[in-house]
Write a protein that binds this DNA or RNA. Structure first.
Lengths: 155, 155
DNA sequence: AATAATCCCATGATATCCCATATATACCCA
DNA sequence: TGGGTATATATGGGATATCATGGGATTATT
């Protein structure tokens, strides 16, 4: 499955187009033609991006909730209801919907941040803040990558 | 899995290219084509390098967190967001990104230090300092290599 | 027809490929 | 053992391809 790495700051032109980093595109492999799925993060002022395979998996995981549970509905509504599918054009660009851009304060520059299975899109200013915050959390709370195989770890 | 050993001082040309030591390359084996993953160390003024399999594994492990957990995001942002994937060219060289070079004060020479599962890249001057410091720590504190099987020692 | 979305091509910058050379190490044969 | 040759590795430079980006043309949309 796709693995998204490192950071890229790309320009957003006046039509709202941004180049998806080439390495992200190649990470998608043959999933590329299905495009990306974007939605507003619930935690941060940024967009979250996934490939289709991952969206499928999110569906699976939500299925583990009790059917008709409120939680499932809430999550499904924010994740699936709010998400958009964007196809790359011939030059590897996507056009960011204006409402999403406004929601996360992106105007003329966008930072793509690889987070492994997913990636995020930030305004450069907000990401700088987020970057130090994440780093501080990791050191303060001594977070480490969990060992293989154990059950889910959460805060 | 790859084992990185010993030290090599190689030149960095004006394009930012360095030869990856041949022994490191052969340690990578068939992982070579996927390249190396580099990022700034949190402890020292140096770069840390892993093979791709290792990165994949970290992605795998982070997957065990609940989706959208804060901890997962913090870790992923610092681990994946800060790292870069570098592919060796036909002559076994990588081009170091300028921002990484500046961060660890590498200009025209780079020292590759094998550390077993990972390796580090230093500027020759800083490494000399680090070398004596590490040696002193080991003798002062009588450090030894721990036995097998116990808990994971990870970044 | 007016507006927006998509496609297509041009450009500059950067990174990648390819070949030439130097240097060191391993190898071979007398 | 010694001398010489072959192989691998490191390094330099120029040609080539890729990528990000801008602008215009073309097609949908209503």
């Amino acid at each position: 499955m796709a693995l998204f790495l490192s950071r890229f700051e790309n320009k957003v032109d006046k039509k709202g187009r941004v180049s998806v980093p080439a390495s992200f595109r190649s990470a998608l492999g043959d999933q590329l033609h299905k495009g990306l799925v974007l939605f507003c993060s619930n935690q941060h002022a940024c967009l979250e991006g996934f490939d289709w395979a991952r969206m499928d998996e999110i569906g699976e995981r939500l299925d583990q909730f009790d059917m008709f549970s409120e939680d499932q509905d809430d999550l499904a509504t924010t994740v699936f209801g709010e998400s958009v599918q964007l196809i790359c054009d011939g030059d590897g660009r996507i056009t960011l919907p204006t409402d999403l851009m406004e929601a996360v304060h992106i105007s003329d520059k966008a930072v793509f941040v690889g987070l492994g299975r997913k990636f995020q899109i930030w305004s450069p200013e907000l990401f700088e803040r987020r970057r130090t915050q994440a780093r501080d959390n990791v050191t303060d709370r001594k977070l480490t990558v969990p060992r293989a195989e154990r059950g889910s770890h959460d805060a």
